[in-house]
Every structure is written in C-alpha cells, then in structure tokens.
Amino acid sequence: MNTTTPTPGTKFRRKIHYVNPRFQGGAALVISAVVAGGGVLFGWLVYRDVGKALWESAMHAHFTMDTPYEIVGNALLMHLAGLSAAVTLLTLVIFLMLLKAVRIGVEHAIASFRASEEGDLSTPTEAGGSTEFRRFGELVDLTRSNTLSRVAALRDEAASLAACGTPDESFRPRWEELKRKMREVAP
C-alpha cells in the first residue's frame, strides 16, 4: 500500500479535460451517431449480400472452396471499405463544420472585444456558429453591460459631484466612495 504523505513541495494538480459537455460531448455524440448509423447500414448490407451468397452457394455451388470466407471475402471487404470510407468522409465533414462554427463564433466575439476596446459596450455580440458560442456571446454581453453600468454609475456620480454645490462634509466621503467604486472596474 502506498503510504506516501504529501510534502509541502509536492504539487497535486488535477487536470480536468471534460470541461464543456455541450461542446466536447456534443461533437462526440454527433460523430458517434454517424458511426452507429454506418455500422447499422453495414450490418444490413452484409446480412443481405453475404447471407444471399452463402445461401446460393449452398444451393448451387460445387464447393471448390475451402472456407466460407473464400465465397464472401470480396463482398465483405468491399462493404468494409465502403463503411470506412463513408464514416471517415462524413466525420471529416462534421469536423470541418465544427471548426467553421467555432471560427464564426470566435470572430464575432473578437469583434465584440475590439468594439469594447473602443468604448462600445452595448452593441450585442450575436456570436453565431453554434449554441455554445451563442451562450458564450451572451456571457460576453453580460460582462460588457455589467462594465458599462459600473462606468455609467461612476460617470453619473462624478458629474453629480462636479456640478452641484455639494457641502464639504459630504463631498469628501462621496469622493472616497467614488475612488473605491473605480477600483472595481476591471479589478
């Protein structure tokens, strides 16, 4: 039994790979559905062709072959090649579509961050591409609107303090409070 006790210098770092079930699990599910569909189609075709070939051989052939594989080997290999080619091609298409969806979503989010840098915190991100990026775009918009409301509150308070003749005794606490709130912007 391992009785090693952790020492101060030992690092225990748990690296979680499955961080986004919708994105990672969704992609795995779609590709798995293609594989399962291909497998079922393959099974049906093999059953139809190989079964028929074996039956016909049993009824008509003179059995010059040593094993059943010699009767159906070519048909089996052809179906296997067809299955592999179809599943690989469909998966490639799905993978490329996934990359495209990610690219579209990321480009929208980047445009949104660049606009935010220029001060536009209210134009919606509208990150398309996939559900995951729409959700991410909503989070980006939430963060931007939160930042905008903080900045707007600061602006209003600063304008209020600068404009009206606030008494000195209440000016100083409001000034300090404004400084404190300012530190909460992009902390």
Partner: peptide, 15 residues
C-alpha cells in the same frame, strides 16, 4: 471638481 469633469469627459466614450 476639475478632476471629476475630466473623468466625466473621459468616461463619455463608453456607451
């Protein structure tokens, strides 16, 4: 108050 006005002007680019 001048500093506050500067801040108001500076933050006005955020919309």
């Amino acid at each position: 108050e001048q500093a506050l006005r500067e801040i108001v002007a500076d933050t006005s680019r955020y919309r």
